[in-house]
Amino acid sequence: MDAELRHLRALVAVVDHGTFTDAAIELKLSQASVSRSVAALENVLGVRLLDRSSRHVALTPAGERALAHARRAIADVSLFRRAAVGAGGELRVGYAWSALGRHTTDLQRRWAAEHPQLPLVLVQSNTPTAGLNEGTCELAVVRRSLADVRFATALIGTEARYAVVAADDRLARRRSVRLADFAARTVAVDSQTGTTTPDLWPADAAPAATRATHGVDEWLTLIAAGQAVGMTAEATVAQHPRPGVVYRRVRDAPPVSVWLAWWRNDPPARSEAFLRLARRAYQTA
């Protein structure tokens, strides 16, 4: 048996998400299926890639050497797919949480008016590259900088940050909040695609703890139950209203940068047109 793409994707997902359980959620597979895929890859190669002795899996030396090649193979397959089928008669734009927020619908309509022969399709993908590395889109809207040199990025605009609390939380009675209001609280954080990181707070006003979540729905469900508070970009406010959850602007938090990303060596033909419309939407606002 040879190594298959699904085996490589399972390995990368486990490394990126830290556990087999979280990798299974991301891949929309069972935990057992992900475990079998990694075990099959190890059997094919004849080496152990992951150390499963700790609470969070860790790469073995062989796994460290293999990981970069696994990522490259997945990316090459994505490039092959796009080269073989082209854009498929549409422009696919990925996003992790909220696309372009309140600008989304207006941009969709403007795009349809200017490019009636090339439908714009928005694709949600809760990965660091919002689907670029996975081959599900040609462009991606990201709110975390991409250090991977394979991708090029261009700034679209910026968004304010908002606190997110349960409707019966004491902060919900305010019109706005400050970073210091998060002190002694538990903050829900999506470390893969979220925009909230510990370095937002001064050392003497840091939250008491963080709680890991995976994706916007899990994040909002936790906050609505009063088990944590959150902070997010303005776009989430427009696209994810939720009963039992209240958004309040954080007055002293730095803005969130919104970027458009694409494969550096394979930019979509209409990337400049999309970037122009997206920037216009933010500048007009």
Rank of each mutant, 00 (worst) to 15 (best):
214 H>P: 00
58 A>K: 13
152 A>W: 04
269 A>R: 12
261 A>I: 08
15 V>E: 14
124 Q>R: 15
263 W>V: 13
83 A>V: 00
36 R>Q: 14
85 V>C: 07
78 S>A: 15
63 G>R: 05
44 V>K: 06
269 A>G: 00
26 E>M: 05
126 N>P: 01
71 R>K: 12
160 A>W: 08
206 A>T: 12
83 A>M: 11
190 D>C: 02
50 L>C: 08
124 Q>H: 04
161 R>I: 03
282 Y>F: 15
29 L>T: 11
262 W>V: 06
77 V>P: 00
60 T>F: 03
144 R>A: 12
180 A>D: 14
85 V>F: 14
246 V>Q: 02
72 R>F: 11
246 V>A: 07
253 A>C: 09
54 S>M: 08
265 N>W: 05
2 D>K: 13
97 W>D: 05
270 R>Y: 14
240 H>Y: 09
47 V>D: 06
182 F>R: 03
220 L>Q: 05
56 H>R: 11
269 A>K: 02
103 H>V: 04
272 E>S: 15
220 L>Y: 02
124 Q>E: 15
93 V>H: 04
269 A>M: 10
126 N>E: 15
247 Y>K: 01
74 I>A: 05
163 A>C: 11
111 W>L: 06
241 P>I: 04
18 G>R: 00
135 G>T: 07
278 A>E: 06
19 T>L: 00
8 L>E: 10
261 A>S: 09
27 L>C: 09
191 S>D: 14
179 L>T: 11
232 T>R: 00
125 S>R: 13
218 E>H: 09
143 R>A: 08
88 G>M: 10
136 T>W: 12
254 P>G: 01
19 T>H: 01
132 L>N: 04
147 A>R: 09
214 H>V: 03
238 A>D: 09
135 G>F: 04
284 T>E: 15
58 A>T: 13
150 R>M: 12
185 R>H: 08
137 C>W: 10
162 Y>C: 04
213 T>M: 01
68 A>Q: 11
97 W>C: 02
93 V>I: 15
273 A>D: 15
96 A>R: 02
36 R>C: 03
33 S>Y: 10
261 A>E: 04
269 A>S: 11
149 V>K: 01
213 T>H: 01
249 R>H: 11
222 L>Y: 01
45 L>D: 03
142 V>Y: 01
21 T>D: 13
132 L>M: 07
74 I>H: 01
241 P>W: 06
151 F>Y: 15
58 A>N: 10
38 V>M: 03
